[in-house]
């Protein structure tokens, strides 16, 4: 194992995070506060409790997931896309590093950053509404799993993307709708029966449901199914990454 390389890339990526601290950390926190003001206070005061939880508290897990998903994905995709765009990728390709090490470093850094943001948002939310976490260990596990699997997914997007438009395409056009329709702000049981069925095809539902369970002990779908859905998604991403490095897809000709 080339540990020095993993550390070098990881530290470089983390330095990028801290260099752009406003964009990286402050802006997701501000947007989360806005969500609380709008949904929690303005609208939330008119909404009854959802599953015995006050609405303001109910949306906390969904809001954290929303940010964590987007952050882990965009960080990893930018992390690997940028060297490709700038041309500095030559050094990575000519260095004695394996694909595995490269992925650990980039995905690890993106996941770390997303995890940090997730925890900061949790702390921020705590200032607005009372939060009690029933299963803290599970909460953290769900968070870490989500960070890692979506960082992997972002890594794939970053390698696939040929330009900045493509880089933003999937997060904007696919992931954002999936997250908003995945129950960030509502419980699936609030939907009409047909939509409840359709929603089950949305993978994000399982993430948010499982994560919410770790807070309140209630879930839209069984926790075991949530867990296997995330694990399955992660395995698929790993498979694609393995294939990318085996074939050199969009990295080497």
């Amino acid at each position: 194992m080339n540990f020095y390389a993993i550390r070098a890339i990881y530290m470089f990526e983390m330095a990028r995070t801290f260099r752009t601290i406003v964009q990286s950390i402050v802006s997701p926190v501000i947007s989360t506060c806005l969500y609380f003001v709008v949904f929690g206070t303005a609208i939330g005061s008119r909404i009854q409790q959802v599953e015995d939880v006050p609405y303001g508290t109910f949306i906390v897990p969904g809001l954290i997931m929303l940010s964590v998903l987007m952050q882990s994905m965009t960080n990893a995709s930018f992390g690997i896309y940028f060297p490709k765009f700038m041309g500095t990728i030559y050094e990575l390709l000519s260095a004695p590093v394996s694909a595995f090490e490269v992925v650990i470093a980039y995905v690890g850094a993106a996941a770390t950053k997303a995890l940090m943001i997730g925890l900061i948002i949790l702390a921020t939310a705590h200032l607005f509404v009372p939060i009690k976490i029933l299963h803290p260990v599970w909460m953290l596990s769900f968070l870490v799993l989500t960070c890692v699997s979506f960082a992997l997914f972002g890594f794939i997007i970053g390698i696939w993307a040929k330009n900045f438009e493509q880089l933003n395409l999937i997060p904007m056009l696919i992931i954002t709708p999936l997250v908003f329709l995945g129950g960030s702000f509502y419980s699936i049981s609030m939907l009409p029966p047909l939509w409840q069925k359709i929603t089950l095809f949305n993978p994000v539902v399982y993430l948010i449901s499982g994560f919410r369970w770790s807070f309140f002990g209630t879930a839209d779908v069984a926790v075991a199914i949530s867990l296997s859905a995330i694990a399955g998604f992660m395995l698929v991403c790993m498979g694609i990454v393995w294939w990318i490095f085996k074939t050199g897809y969009r990295l080497k000709s």
């Binding site: 080339n2 540990f3 020095y4 390389a5 550390r7 070098a8 890339i9 470089f12 330095a15 990028r16 260099r19 060297p83 700038m86 041309g87 500095t88 030559y90 050094e91 990575l92 260095a95 004695p96 590093v97």
Partner: peptide, 20 residues
């Protein structure tokens, strides 16, 4: 091709790390 924001010294340290 260089990482624009990286400092000169860090660039060299980074490369050395990449090469284990």
């Amino acid at each position: 091709t260089l990482e624009s924001f990286q400092k000169v010294k860090d660039s060299l340290h980074f490369s050395r790390g990449l090469f284990n």
